[in-house]
Nucleic acid binder design. Sequence first.
DNA 1: GAGCACTGC
Length: 723
Amino acid sequence: MTKNKTKKTTYGKKDKLKKRIKHKLKKTVESYSDDPVKLKEMDDLVKELTKLDTIKCEVEEADRFKRYFSKSENVEDMPENAADICAGPLGIDEFEHIVEIADDTQIEETIDDKIGEIKSALKNSRVVIVQGNTGCGKTTKIPRMLMDEYRKIVCTQPRRLAAISVARKVAGDVGCDLGSKVGYTVRFDDKTSSKTRLKFATDGVLIKEIYSKQVRLMHSHRKKKNMKKIAGYDLIVIDEAHERTVNIDFLLGFIKRALQSEKARTRLLIMSATLNTERFVEYFQCPLVTIKHRSYNIEYFYLKYDCDDYLSVCIRTAQAIIERERDGDVLVFLTGQDEIERAHFILSGKLSGADVVILKLFSTMPPEEQDLVFQHSARKIILSTNIAETSITIENIKFVVDSGVFKAKRYYACNAIDSLDLIEISKAQAKQRAGRAGRTQPGKVFRIYSYSRYLQMADNPMPEILRSKLHSTVLSMKSLGITDVENFDFIDAPSLESINQAELFLYYIRAIDKNGVITDFGRELANIPLEPETAISLVAAKRIGCLNAVATISAFLEYQTPFLELRSDHPEYRRYKSARSYFSHPKGDFYSFLVIFYSWEQSKFSFGFLRKNFLNIKTMVQILNVRAQILRLFPHCSDTSLSIERAFCTGFFMKAAKISENGYKTIFGDVECYIHPRDGLLSAHPKYVVFYELFSLKNEYMGHCLEVLLSDLQEPINRFVAK
DNA sequence: GAGCACTGC
């Protein structure tokens, strides 16, 4: 294993630095006032404290991203089978037709052919990887066929819906009731029993299971016997491993570590789509079993040039397909709601006479409208975000138009800002998008980028762990006894900056001690299924006596918005606007959430109320569940106080901002920002606010704000300084 | 003043 860590920060060094700065900081805070000079002084100190030079860090981080994406391949390396270039059948000169002959489309292998190989590989190796494309049936067949070799099996899925529907299908195949021999566990829904031998679960559930088994173990005397199996399983199957979510990466690292023990008895099977399995093989040094699966033929068309205005070309291409090809539905991959609405408007005009329906698909739209894509109707053009890449599968797509870009959130540790960036897709994503055609019939894919640009794309998307905030991940790792996070053997190790920032934060809030070991308070936080800041606020709320209100708001904060997103051309737009402003509280989103919840409660949680007020039913039910889950963690609490500001300041004091000449400035980090225009607090111009998140669009915005008093902020800041 | 992709405990 190679470690390319050059810098190693020790707690001892950090401690000394902090002692010195804290002394100065304390003096500053004691005289903390509106004096701009003093405030500036404090900001400087905080910057020194976090040891993050913003500009340098930004450059480094941008560099890191660039390096990741420009895994350059020589443009001249055109494969021989790509030499067949001709004008596309659409007659659009702009495209070149490139025939790619993928060898895995020519031979058909079934799981039955391969299961013997998988079984014997698992006998000889603790870890085995199976690669096969979607549609080969690996998820539904392999775990079931391994039931006669392994007594207790868990198979993880990245999404709740997938875990539930796969479990249902497999229970049917086995011929048992769901929840007996085969079952599933997802948050808020458990269909398993003591008889369950094959369980499908989300990866987050497995992590929680590992955690609670470990806690139980600490109080048990049968330590040695139990250590042999991870969470009591004989076989752990990690499905869709190519998606590389934070949870998957952490599970793989954790299990790899656990399996290094001689006594370990659990086996690990990793299932992944093709293309990036080499990474897993390299990481685990283990055998790979490939299942070749035939799909229908897909023809590829590339743009002859690279263009900036991919949206217009996507629209023109979709139009040309409808006009020149006799039948077949079209799926267009765009980046966001705004683009989709524009494309919808333009295409509706251009194709007004044609017998075609133009549909939109993104996550925050009303579910009834989403369901239209599944209905049998006239010929369809579906304008979708990357929700159609993995989460939603639409049958009968014959044509795919691929813009080559998507939007993704990236966390910049240097200034603690989330930025939603337009990012070029990877080859793996291009393949995934293309595969959405050709599921049920031969298909054609129009790539709105040139072949040479395709060759330059990275092989795989950047793993989530390299672009997200690690505060809560590091906290869970610490709670599992992993103290040395910097040297944890991840497949792709996150930057030292983001690990250090997370550790420093956890240290400030006393979740870990100066040796990096979790404290009792940290354990309490880790047990609350929310971001650490929110979890701290809850613990404070219990003390202050406003737990119910804070729990309600916290549940809302977990979701971006409880509302549906309607555009100004929607027939019900005026009613929608007035519903939104009715619930918009002048003291900001935090209070708006309370108003929404109590109004819903008054309606006895009726769905009619939600529909009437354009609230997202799915989201609101989740919020209700989360709220109940939180309240179960804090039994026998009744509200005696309304100081939710004090409670939230305890958790969010690092996310506070003060009004400035033309907007706000964060107290820690000195970031110029605005209250998001959607927030009810916008017109009140409060002097101090705390915010849930800071994100970057054209400007920096604070999402979900709460007006607070300086005195509310002072106590937690003083406490943190006095440590 | 100006509008955010998708998941999960």
